[in-house]
Design a protein around this nucleic acid. Structure first.
Length: 245
RNA sequence: UACUGUUUAAGG
């Protein structure tokens, strides 16, 4: 069964859903009982492809067969809802998790925070953020980047900065993605001074900007009609040995 | 053995 699970995960990961299904049928044909991992891999495979109905069907099959999903399994389906923007369904699952007496993990909260932000519900996201801390769930660097990015996209630059600073104050590791999230926010807001300052801070910390870093800045400059500045950034990018994609 | 975060047109 372990071997079948590995194969199903592989096909799911590479988007070969038909082969994943075929392997699943073969597994059952051999009289091998799928477990929560088997179903989890299938939920994930179809969820990543945006095929919500099928993902949900596997999840329900698992319930019908008397398996008790654990938190990561719920997260897989919740992430499917997040991807297609079905916020209410994601919130419904969250309620189920709590009703069953499970403790949502930091990943669960991160998925919900991102769902809320993508629907423009940044106020609700901040509330949930406070609630998660109140419930004793410690935010991680995913949590902060999600919020910085979400607040930034909503145009709430100062709030994004506040969250970023909070991450620093809490000694959370500020990784490249966290910097990229804030840089994109600042660049879109036309706050180039802070962009350059932040870039300097990054290099002091030994963090190497990647194509994502440069692309988001150039994109913002282009949109605000500053092709010359964008070109200058492009020059710096090449100078720094970063290959344009 | 599984789950989450950063950039990406224009026109219609």
């Amino acid at each position: 069964r372990f071997a079948y699970n590995v194969i199903i995960r592989y096909f799911g990961h590479s988007g070969q859903l038909d082969l994943a299904m075929e392997t699943f049928r073969e597994m059952k044909g051999m009289g091998l009982e799928p477990d929560v991992y088997t179903y989890g891999f299938l939920v994930n495979a179809f969820g990543k492809a945006g095929r919500v109905q099928e993902a949900r069907k596997f999840f329900n099959d698992m319930l019908d067969r008397g398996f008790t999903p654990n938190v990561p399994t719920y997260n897989l389906l919740m992430n499917t809802y997040r991807k297609v923007g079905q916020l209410d369904a994601a919130l419904g699952l969250f309620a189920d998790v709590k009703k069953k007496g499970f403790r949502p993990s930091v990943v669960t909260y991160n998925i919900l925070l991102d769902s809320l932000c993508r629907r423009g519900r940044v106020g609700a996201a901040r509330k949930l953020f406070n609630k998660m801390i109140g419930d004793g769930c410690t935010p991680d660097s995913y949590t902060y980047s999600t919020l910085v990015s979400g607040l930034g996209k909503a145009g709430r630059v100062e709030d994004a900065l506040k969250i970023f600073r909070e991450m620093v104050e809490r000694d959370e590791i500020v990784d490249l993605i966290a910097y990229n999230s804030l840089l994109a926010t600042l660049a879109k807001a036309g706050n180039m001074q802070r962009v350059w300052n932040l870039m300097n801070e990054m290099s002091r910390k030994g963090l190497i900007p990647d194509t994502n870093t440069y692309n988001s800045i150039m994109n913002a400059l282009g949109k605000s009609n500053k092709p010359d500045a964008a070109q200058e950034v492009f020059g710096r990018m090449v100078e720094a040995g970063c290959k344009p994609d």
